[in-house]
Structures are given as structure tokens and as C-alpha cells.
Design a protein around this nucleic acid. Structure first.
Lengths: 137, 137
DNA sequence: TCAAAAAAAGACCTAATAAATCTACAATGC
DNA sequence: GCATTGTAGATTTATTAGGTCTTTTTTTGA
């Protein structure tokens, strides 16, 4: 029932970038230091955030990272799913054979899990980085 | 972001017991077989459900397990917390030093996590075993 | 009284995975 | 051409979920 460090770090990195001037390029080390994230781990995460379209990168001595899309279009859910896969409150809430429940045809718990899951996914999807609360004072 | 097998098994065991006649004593093996849970693992779980007051046990040759409290008083949340500890959507939502965020004094993400967490906890708490949907046909 | 069947207790194993680290390489700008 | 940056991916480490095994204790009823 917990977001991975990886996803959490990704979200913090994005929070950092949201607070930078539009054309500023931020280096891995700069972000790592500010957010207290192990540098090499963050390097991998940022690369992945590029691959998944959240960031764009620039190589070379003046290189670094920037947001690649409108911050209003980046939600907690987006980033978490990119980093740790589909959010599932319980293994069995997975249509591709997640539940090996003996009573599969009429598992009594499944509908409850599905509802709870739906709510979490909705909540995570509603948090986007255009929210003024992400601007640091 | 996922309920452990242990908690899931505990919930299934309780579902099983909810469907038994009031004074029936159900053995570990009986429950394990019906629910498709590894027997020895379930043994540990049931013991713990006793310790935490959900079940009562009887030793000896006619022994077994029964519900120890009103099924209306048993929620998903109760059982999950008994089995895997406090539900936390993110490590940092832990008042005893969970968040080592550099910007701790005004971490921008924390309020969002707390709200999402509150909703999940609420949802999990609302599911109780007196719900007729837990009666198997 | 004793064998069978149940739970109790707790040590032990193991396999998966998250988290982190390391090393070598490639691009860029001055 | 060299300092600084990102790229790539192999490797390591640590943790923990999940499961197994063994021994002991309790109880019943033949």
C-alpha cells in the first residue's frame, strides 16, 4: 500500500523542475542535492522520465533537464504509473489473472477492492502540478 | 500500493468464517483448502488473528477457529492494519520521522499524500463483514 | 491410558524486488 | 582537447514478503 521510493523521487524531481524558470536546464546533481536523492539513482529515474515523455534532456557541458510537457498535464498518477506500473490496491484487482481465488466466479471481496482502487486512482489522477501549492516559497 | 498476501489471506479466512454457522469450529486445514491458502502460512495468520482479537481458538481434537467479535465490527481496515501495520500510501506520511524531505518544513507533496491516505483509510474502514455481499450463495 | 487430531510456537529458508552503486561511454561547448 | 554533462546498463546489496518445517502442547474419546 505504498508508493516506491523511485516514484516518490520522480515526483520530487518534477516538483523541483516546476519551480525552475522555463528555460533553465537543471543538472542531475543539482536536483539530487536539492531534493536529497542519491545522484546515480536519480540519473536513472530522470532518464526514464525522458523516455516516458515527462522531461526532455540536453547533453554536453551546458546540458540538463527540463519539463517536456505542460505541468497541468502531469499528475501523481501519470508519474507513479510510469515509474512503478499500474496502481493496484490488491493483487487480485488485475483482470489478467491476478486473482486465483477459489471462488473466482463469485469472489465476494473483488467488488470492494475494485471500488477502493477506483477511488485511489481517481484521487491520484486529480493531483496535477499546475496546482499553486507546488510553488515553493 | 498493495495489500500483502498475508492481509488478503486473513480477509479471506474471515470471509470463510462469516459464512459458517455460529458455533461451528473450523480447522486450519478446512479453511486453507476452501480458500486456497498455504496451510502453514494460514496457521500463522489465524494465530495472529486470535492474538488481535478477531478470532477465538479451541485446541485439541475438536478444536478450531470461530469469529470472536460481531462481524459488523470487523472492517477491511482493522484486519489489514492488524496484519501489515498502519496503512500508508507513501513512506513520508508517517508522523514519526517518515519524511526526510529536504524541504520538510514546507514539503509541497505531503498535504496531497495525507488527503489521499485519509480517503483510502476511510474507504477501507467502511467495508465491514455484516455486508450481505459477503454471504456466499 | 493412549493414540489421533487439533492448535501453538517459533526457527528457518528463499526468492523476489526495491534501492542503490559502479563503470564505461558519448555528447557538447568553450 | 578537456572539462562537464547525460546515457547505458551491469552489478550489488538489503530487505522483506511469503512460505516451510519441526517440535510441543492441548484435548477428546476409543
Amino acid at each position: 500500500m505504498q508508493i516506491s521510493r523511485k516514484a516518490d523521487y520522480a515526483l520530487r524531481a518534477i516538483t523541483f523542475l516546476v519551480n525552475q524558470p522555463d528555460n533553465k536546464r537543471s543538472s542531475i546533481s543539482e536536483i539530487a542535492e536539492s531534493e536529497g536523492i542519491p545522484r546515480d539513482f536519480l540519473a536513472k529515474i530522470l532518464k526514464e522520465l525522458c523516455r516516458t515523455g515527462f522531461l526532455k534532456s540536453f547533453q554536453g557541458v551546458t546540458g540538463g533537464y527540463q519539463l517536456a510537457k505542460d505541468k497541468a498535464k502531469i499528475s501523481f498518477l501519470n508519474v507513479i504509473e510510469a515509474m512503478q506500473g499500474e496502481v493496484k490496491v490488491n493483487m487480485c484487482v488485475d483482470d489478467n489473472g491476478g486473482c486465483q481465488c477459489n471462488h473466482r466466479i463469485s469472489c465476494t471481496m473483488l467488488p470492494f477492492w475494485k471500488k477502493i482502487q477506483k477511488n485511489v486512482v481517481h484521487d491520484l489522477g486529480e493531483v496535477t502540478f499546475d496546482d499553486p501549492k507546488f510553488i515553493r516559497k
